[in-house]
Computed example of a mutant assay.
Amino acid sequence: MVWRGLGDHAFKVESTLVRALRKEGVEVTEANLRQREVEILRVARNWDIGLSEHGSVTDMHLLAMLQHHGAPTRLIDVTFNPLTALWFACSDSSMANLPGVLVVMTVSDAPSRVTSDIPTLTYDTVTMPREATVISAMRKSQAIGGPLLIEPRPKDERMKAQEGAFLAGVFPDVPQDGPVVGFQWSGFAPLLPFTLRALESPDANIGGTNWQGFSYAGIVISPEIKRQLLPVLDRTFNRSHRTMYPDMPGFVATLKQGLLRDELGSDGNRGGDLPVPMPEYWQNA
């Protein structure tokens, strides 16, 4: 299973690229997603993004890089750790008064890809090895009727801390009606919530560990529970902005959002209760 936390239970699990096209008034289809995806990749490469002394990364690797830095892609961020997803569902201060949701999605039988994999070429992709990684993945998604699990390699410090991965799949011809957008799923999908409820019973007997097909369920978290969970997640499970975003962009973003006021108000030893001494050059002025 993989997990995703949403600060507002009215949100859907959907890719940033799907949201971008919808905002522009563009019909969300696989053809339009792929066209915009190719355009973004082309322009990124024109900026020398993904280029190093070792050559140019594959399209799948470049998509993961772009997603990591906030660009619209078809990839959807997920984590293998439910505590991390729970923190994301509770931590956004702008949504503190809204119910959040902890989303669980089954991927036990989903094929996986690694972003640094050497592409498997076919007769029609032999001349475009970089593009082959995404093309083959979407063909596989279409064949199985569900998403693929995309694991980033190598992982930077943030992905390690968040135990993160991605879900990606070909956009269905007939979009599914529900809170998870852009994936096909089997007829077993609606059964997962009932299975999870059954597990609460002491005499529940759920056979096997491999759930066939992609499915999902959501656990709604009230604003009051959010407030109660945050200090527990911080003090007991070490989930905070500092641990979830352990890099320079994460620190700067947290600082700009005004989430470090308490820490800026103290220096550790004095606890912020003594005045900061005036620099000598200002005293002389």
Score class of each variant (00 low, 15 high):
222 S>G: 03
220 V>R: 15
265 G>R: 10
188 F>E: 09
159 M>I: 09
242 R>Y: 12
164 G>R: 05
223 P>Q: 01
244 M>E: 15
191 L>T: 12
210 N>Q: 09
264 L>T: 00
223 P>C: 10
166 F>D: 01
251 F>W: 04
168 A>E: 00
201 S>H: 08
185 W>F: 13
231 P>C: 06
237 F>E: 03
238 N>R: 13
211 W>F: 12
206 I>C: 06
233 L>A: 03
248 M>K: 08
219 I>P: 06
215 S>G: 06
215 S>E: 11
225 I>D: 14
249 P>C: 08
232 V>M: 12
226 K>H: 09
203 D>G: 03
158 R>G: 00
171 F>S: 03
192 L>K: 10
187 G>Q: 15
223 P>V: 06
178 G>D: 06
174 V>E: 14
260 L>Y: 11
183 F>T: 02
209 T>G: 12
167 L>F: 14
232 V>R: 14
164 G>N: 09
234 D>Q: 15
251 F>Q: 02
191 L>D: 04
199 L>H: 02
255 L>M: 07
262 D>Y: 04
165 A>K: 00
160 K>S: 12
224 E>H: 02
165 A>V: 09
232 V>N: 03
192 L>V: 07
244 M>V: 07
173 D>M: 08
195 T>M: 14
231 P>E: 11
164 G>Y: 09
264 L>K: 00
206 I>R: 03
181 V>A: 03
247 D>P: 03
231 P>V: 12
248 M>N: 10
171 F>N: 07
252 V>N: 08
209 T>L: 14
263 E>A: 11
161 A>F: 05
248 M>C: 08
257 Q>V: 04
160 K>W: 11
197 R>D: 09
163 E>T: 15
215 S>V: 02
243 T>I: 08
212 Q>N: 15
222 S>W: 00
194 F>I: 12
239 R>I: 12
259 L>D: 08
235 R>E: 12
203 D>P: 01
161 A>T: 01
234 D>N: 15
